[in-house]
Amino acid sequence: MSIEQRNDACLIAVDREVGQVLRLQTLVVLEANHHHFEDVRGLGPDAQRALARIYRDAFSVLDAVGWDPADDAGAAAARRDVPLTAGHMDQLWRRRRELGFANLDRLDLDGPDVDLAALTADREAAQTLDRLQAEFALAVAPAARRA
């Protein structure tokens, strides 16, 4: 968390469905990193800046997609430009892996309590994050060649 690197945002246009997945998974990123604040005074300045960057990137995404899912109701076809950074995409990649592992852990085909709706929602979220990762990689590739 203490490595200083460029983390420029790339604007990616997302539709309502991708925005909903992005909102939920970004909130999970915030939840997953909250424990660092318990010891924030004990962190060095570089680590404090790195932690701030995680939250700053997440808040920028939430500001772009909207904080309230109810705000999406009338904007079915609307696309929004979302500022995504390499750091936030790394956090989302971790979430994507966790979604896959969670589904494997919950998948007990012999048991009567298989929640297919939750499995399907997590699978669809993972697929959405896969597509978002690919779109981000394509968007930053030309910029990396120019740098």
Rank of each mutant, 00 (worst) to 15 (best):
L92K: 04
R56N: 08
A47D: 01
R41A: 14
A50V: 00
P83D: 06
H88Y: 11
A86I: 09
Q48P: 01
A75V: 09
D46C: 02
G44E: 05
A64R: 08
R97S: 14
L62K: 03
D90L: 12
H88L: 15
A70D: 15
G44L: 00
D46E: 13
R79F: 09
P83R: 06
G66L: 00
R56T: 11
D90N: 13
D63M: 06
D46N: 11
R95F: 07
D68T: 03
L92C: 09
D57M: 01
L62Q: 03
Q48H: 01
A73S: 08
A73W: 06
Y55C: 11
F37A: 06
A70I: 10
G44I: 00
H36C: 07
A86S: 14
D90P: 00
W93N: 15
R49M: 11
L43T: 02
R53V: 12
A64N: 06
D63L: 08
L43F: 09
V61G: 04
A70T: 09
D63R: 10
L51V: 04
R94W: 14
A76Q: 06
Q91V: 08
A77V: 11
R96D: 05
H36K: 13
R80K: 15
W67P: 03
R96W: 08
D63C: 07
A86F: 09
G74Q: 03
A78C: 05
F37M: 11
Q48S: 00
R94M: 13
T85W: 06
R95W: 08
R97Y: 13
A52E: 15
H36Q: 13
F59K: 12
G87L: 05
L51P: 06
L92F: 05
R49V: 11
R94C: 13
R79E: 13
H36W: 15
A86Y: 08
G87T: 05
M89D: 05
L62W: 02
D57Q: 02
P45C: 01
D57N: 11
G74N: 01
R80H: 13
A47F: 00
A47I: 00
R53Q: 15
G87P: 04
P45Q: 10
W67E: 11
G66K: 02
R56D: 14
P45I: 02
H88V: 08
A77T: 14
G42D: 07
A50Y: 01
A77K: 13
R49Y: 05
A75C: 09
Y55R: 12
G42Y: 00
G66Q: 03
G42N: 08
D71I: 04
D57H: 03
S60V: 01
V40H: 03
A78Y: 04
G42A: 08
V65Q: 02
G44V: 00
R49N: 10
I54M: 07
Q48K: 09
D57F: 07
R56A: 12
